[in-house]
Amino acid sequence: MSLLAAILAGMFLAAGAIFVLIGSFGLWRLPDFYTRLHAAGITDTLGLSLMLVGMMFLGGWTLVTVKLVFIMLLILLTSPTATHAVANAAYTVGLRPFGVPPEDLAEKDR
């Protein structure tokens, strides 16, 4: 492995880990379920992609990299569906969002 690839891998891994940590911290810190969805989104998009790209630099041009690409595509395609499913389930049973102005909500939820 060349030095450049090692340095790039380290940078991407560090950035990814930082974004994963920020997302998890947000999941703890934000006030209600709907705002926490956005924090989970950080982990699922940028944190995950950066860490996997870092590992691709470690793997080089091998089948390992191909598998990492498949993992990344799979999660990027399924995570919005899972997030929407959780959000929609909460909205359907009428979980009240924090801090949203009342005119935004449907009649029954005000």
Partner: peptide, 26 residues
Amino acid sequence: YANSITLTPGTVTVDIDDDEFVVHAI
């Protein structure tokens, strides 16, 4: 479109009625 909105942090598609999305923005 709905998945692009959800994939972008800060906006999540919460509900869909016919051709209108209900989107939660932070």
